[in-house]
Each structure stands twice: as structure tokens, then as C-alpha cells.
Amino acid sequence: MHGPATAGWLLVALCAGAGGYCLLRMRAAVGEARGTAGGEALMGFGMAAMAVPTAALSPPRWVWLGYAAVFGAAALGAAVRARSSPHHAHHLLGMLAMVYMAGAMALTPGGAHGVHAAAGVPLVTGGLLLYYTAYVLRAGARLLPLPAAAEPGGAVSGGPAGVVGAGRGEWPELTLVCRLSMGLAMLAMLLGL
């Protein structure tokens, strides 16, 4: 899941930053929003750990199996919540993608990256690449500003499409940016698999 060391460290920083922001959101959120932010924080920090360049750290097989177990457990929790909203279904797919990538790394000798280079792109990797490409394009489009429209009573509305009311201590646009960043990071990790 790693390319050149600089790109790997940038991916680590991006994912860790997104995970940190999600922890802050989790701290300020209540109810279901807290669980959503917690799942996104787990994804961010897990992706940061998996993106560390192999030149700096090449974990043994049991670490990859540990990642698979952690994200497998998180996938079970996401599966329970997936019926309530499409975003929880996205979390479920993300957790399963992490299990898939960790399993692929556990099966390679020494956790070497570029697992599928010789065999081509497997069907699961290709499907995940298509899904995350569509997700990134959709998330990016949601950040585009809408033209300001006059509301009844003379008020003017506008802003990113699809942004709903913010919770305490939450900036909806930054939340969308974090989700977009993690989607891009997932694409990069899948391409390097």
C-alpha cells in the first residue's frame, strides 16, 4: 500500500489529521453522531498506520492480522447500524476494505507492498476502486458552493450542497473535507495494493 516514501508520509499525515479531527468531533457530538465520528476516527488512524512507508517500518504478519481483527470487529458494528443510513453502509464497506487490505498484506512475504503487481488487479480491488472513485467524485461535488438563493422573509442561503445542520463544535464543510480526504487516501492505498 505504499509508493515512494514521501508520498507515504504525506498519506500518513493526511489520514492522521483526518482521524484527529474526527476525534474532536466525537468529543463534541452526542448520540449517533458520536458513533459516526468514532468510526471515522478509527478509519483515519488505521489508514495512517497502514500507510507508513515500508522503508521506515515493515510490520510482521501478526500486526496485519491484528488490523484485520480490529476492522472486522468494527465492520460488525457498522453492519448493525448500516440499516439506518447510507453513510453507515459506506462505513461498513470502508471497514471491510480495511480487512481486505490487511489480509492481503498478511498473505505477502514480509508484508511487501504491491501485492497484486504480478497477478493484475483482482475483482475485489477493482470493485473497491470503482466505488471509492465514485465516492470521491460525489463528495467533491458536495463541497461546491450553491448559488445564493433568497428565502421567504428576505434571508439568503447558500453553501456546500448536502451540508446539514452542524452539531456542537462541528464545521460541516470540514467534516466533508475529511471524508473526501479519507476517500482519496483509500483510493491511493488500493492503487498501491
Rank of each mutant, 00 (worst) to 15 (best):
G3F: 03
T6G: 06
G8P: 02
L10F: 07
L11D: 07
L14C: 12
L14K: 11
A16S: 05
A18K: 03
A18W: 00
G19P: 00
Y21W: 11
Y21C: 08
L23E: 10
L24R: 13
R25I: 02
R25D: 05
E32L: 13
E32A: 12
A33N: 08
G35D: 07
L42P: 02
M47W: 12
A48L: 03
A49H: 12
A49N: 11
M50I: 08
A51N: 04
A51G: 05
V52E: 05
V52G: 05
A55G: 09
L57G: 03
L57D: 05
P59E: 00
P59L: 01
P60G: 01
W64Q: 01
W64I: 01
F71D: 00
F71A: 00
A74E: 00
A78S: 10
A79M: 01
V80M: 03
R81Y: 07
R81W: 09
A82S: 15
P86Y: 08
P86I: 07
H87Q: 12
A89E: 12
H91L: 14
L92G: 02
L92M: 04
L92N: 01
M95T: 01
L96V: 08
A97M: 14
M98E: 05
M98A: 11
V99D: 01
V99L: 04
M101W: 04
M101Y: 06
G103P: 00
G103Q: 01
M105W: 07
P109H: 11
G111W: 01
H116K: 05
P122A: 04
L123P: 05
V124I: 14
G127L: 12
L128N: 00
L129T: 07
L129F: 11
A134Y: 10
A134G: 11
Y135E: 08
Y135A: 11
V136E: 10
V136F: 08
L137A: 13
A139E: 14
G140Q: 01
R142H: 07
L144P: 00
L144H: 02
L144Y: 02
L144N: 00
L144D: 02
L144R: 06
L144K: 03
L146H: 12
A149R: 14
P152V: 08
G153P: 02
G153M: 07
G158T: 08
P160S: 04
G162T: 03
V163L: 14
V164H: 12
G165M: 12
G165C: 09
G167T: 02
G169E: 08
E170F: 04
E170M: 04
E170L: 04
W171N: 10
V177N: 06
C178Q: 14
R179S: 15
G183R: 00
L184C: 12
A185P: 03
L187G: 06
